[in-house]
Amino acid sequence: MKRVVVDHYGGPEVLRVVEDDVPRPGPGEVRVRVLAAGVSLTDAQLRAGTYLGVPRPPFTPGYEIVGVVDELGPACARLHVADRVAALTAYGGYAEYVCVPEAEAVEVPRHLDPAEVVGLVLTYTTAYQMLHRSAHVQTGESMLVHGAAGRVGVAVLELGMLAGLRLYGTAAARDRAAVERLGAVAIDYRTEDFLARIRGLTGDGVDVVLDGIGGATSIRSFRALRSGGRLVVYGHYAMLARGRTSRRRWAAGWLEWYGTTATVALWGLLDPRRKVMTYRVQRLRDSHQWLPVSGRRPARLVGGGPRNPQWFREDLGVLLDLLTADKIHPVVAERLPLSEAARAHEMLESSAAKGKLALVP
């Protein structure tokens, strides 16, 4: 089979395609023939070596897949050969075949487009779980999301509308119309102070802030909360410099991230009226678990999946139902072959407002 390999951390140019043996599923695993593998910012952070729990090279990136079960390992009882499934692999997805734990695979209706479905696995599941598992949003509440025109931001706005939330989103001026079409008040992060604007629009702040940027933004996001508000920090975009590792920026970014995380965590402890939590789709935990724990490095091709596979299956199942009912609309920006994985990574930043990139073996 063909798979993409990262031999050493770096920019998109480190991605190369190799020939390898087709893996055999172990006990409790199924082998999946990949129909679509999502390309995400998380993959770029893995490739650059800036993601918590990143495996040591050589490894195959690829956080999410949709495919067809073509072999069952010993002790598998739920799935069958020819079932179409989706899985959160964490890494290993850029390949023609991947072995995943049966418990972490989610059945997918055959009539759905695999490239559209792969857009749900990481992006929309992240958005859904932050809203409903972490922040526990309620109809009528107000929410601010940073990066509202990005892939997670768009998913949050779509799901936030369905949840009956009043929405605000930071974005570049060029994306204002797109954000407003999704029902949110757009705030230009380059020319407007989002904290002052939120206070001006709401009077006392918002109920929820979803912050995928981290750093100093998290401190201002905390200050944008009203009494009873919840801040969910789920990213550290500043760690990645234009898709490539900047060692100075990487070191400074981690120092800033940990420093501001500790500061905001302390504020959360000292101010019982407002809560602070971090979120990682791979390790969904109780809301007061603060610093994410580095993921394990298994010897097998794929990485560890969600800590609670039942929640993952339930939540992705809800999203598949919403997709079938045409209530959410994951957009596929482009479909590329495995051989163009490096090009896909180069396109990541420019494609953020256009939709999901999918590798199609």
Rank of each mutant, 00 (worst) to 15 (best):
A177N: 10
D188T: 07
A163V: 12
R176E: 13
R174G: 07
T170F: 02
V185T: 15
R190K: 14
A178F: 11
V185P: 00
A155W: 03
A186Q: 07
Y168G: 00
T170Q: 02
E158Y: 06
G183M: 08
M161A: 15
A173D: 12
G160V: 06
Y189S: 05
A155I: 02
D175G: 07
L162T: 09
V154Q: 14
R197P: 07
A184G: 05
Y168C: 02
T170H: 04
D193H: 07
V156W: 00
G153T: 04
A155P: 08
L157R: 08
G153M: 03
Y189R: 11
L182A: 13
D175N: 15
A177R: 15
V156H: 01
T202R: 08
G153P: 06
L195M: 06
D193T: 10
F194A: 04
L167H: 03
R199W: 13
M161L: 14
T170E: 04
V185Q: 10
Y189M: 05
A196T: 11
A149E: 01
A186F: 07
V154P: 00
A163R: 10
D193V: 10
M161W: 12
T170K: 04
R174F: 08
R197F: 06
G203D: 11
D188S: 10
G183S: 11
L162A: 13
E192Y: 03
R151H: 05
L182Y: 06
D188C: 09
G169F: 05
A184E: 01
G200W: 07
V156R: 00
R151P: 01
F194K: 04
R190D: 11
L195Y: 08
A184Q: 06
G150S: 06
A177D: 15
E180R: 04
A196H: 10
A172G: 15
G203L: 09
L165C: 12
L157G: 06
E192G: 06
R197K: 15
A177S: 14
L159F: 10
L201D: 12
I198D: 01
R197M: 12
T191R: 15
R199K: 14
R190Q: 14
A155E: 00
L159M: 08
R151D: 02
L165W: 05
A163K: 08
L157D: 05
L167Q: 05
V179Y: 01
A149P: 05
A163N: 09
E158T: 05
A173Y: 02
L165T: 10
A178W: 00
